[in-house]
Amino acid sequence: MIMKRLLEFAGLEPERFQARWISGSEGAKFAATVQEITEQIKKLGPNTKMRDTDE
């Protein structure tokens, strides 16, 4: 919770860092969550923050 707020304070879009409690027996919840997050991130487009270190 602290980490998430810190990242947002530093200018990361809230959707880019998310956390959920999902137990090993909740396959459907896992799939739905991943889908949901993927859609949100696609809408945002590529991340531009912290991208100036070339390999």
Partner: peptide, 23 residues
């Protein structure tokens, strides 16, 4: 944490430093 002095690595340094002293 990379020692390179650029915006990305500096940002990583700052976020980690702040979080390491959280609480």
């Amino acid at each position: 944490v990379s020692k390179r002095n650029n915006l990305t690595e500096n940002t990583a340094f700052h976020l980690i430093r702040a979080f390491h002293v959280a609480g």
